[in-house]
């Protein structure tokens, strides 16, 4: 794969967000700054639309906003660890780990398989715990790159 799904500059380990939308916006800024998203507002609208269909709060305190969008350059993952959990619509409580998945409209098989593998890893508590315990962006990016492999 040409570009890694995640790098340290796409991780915010101490995110201070008021709500779901705010947390999403801050992660989108990271993607925009890295040049992976061309239009922050446009992408944000796409994510909101997806979120409106069905909240993406997952079990174990995870928010997983995502969208396939024309404003995305490369399949990317931004990770935010929230100082204070915010409600992501999951029945078991607020989200403290937020994964923003950005997929280009025309993403092809290999890219999507990586994202599928990520979604599968998120079910495992050990994976979530190791991310929650990681204290710096590089470690987070490392764990994700190491653990999320296409099987």
């Amino acid at each position: 794969m040409s570009t890694p799904l995640i790098t340290a500059d796409l991780v915010a380990v101490d995110l201070d967000a008021t709500d779901r939308d705010d947390a999403t916006r801050q992660l989108i800024e990271l993607l925009t700054a890295a040049g992976r998203v061309t239009d922050a507002d446009g992408f944000h609208a796409d994510v909101r639309a997806r979120e409106a269909q069905m909240a993406t709060g997952m079990p174990g305190g995870v928010g997983l906003p995502h969208a396939r969008s024309a404003h995305v350059v490369e399949p990317s993952l931004a990770v935010g660890k929230l100082r204070q959990g915010v409600d992501w619509g999951a029945p078991d409580g607020p989200a403290r780990l937020v994964f923003l998945i950005a997929a280009p409209d025309g993403a092809h098989g290999d890219h999507l398989k990586i994202l599928a593998a990520l979604a599968r890893r998120l079910i495992h508590e050990s994976f979530r715990t190791s991310l929650l315990e990681a204290s710096d962006p590089a470690t987070v990016a490392d764990i994700v790159s190491r653990e999320v492999v296409v099987s």
Binding site: M54, T56, H66, R68, I101, A119, I123, H124
Partner: peptide
């Protein structure tokens, strides 16, 4: 799932 990126695979794994 609608997007086919997240829930589909999480449900499978779960």
């Amino acid at each position: 799932c609608p997007t086919g990126i997240a829930h589909t695979y999480m449900a499978a794994e779960a």
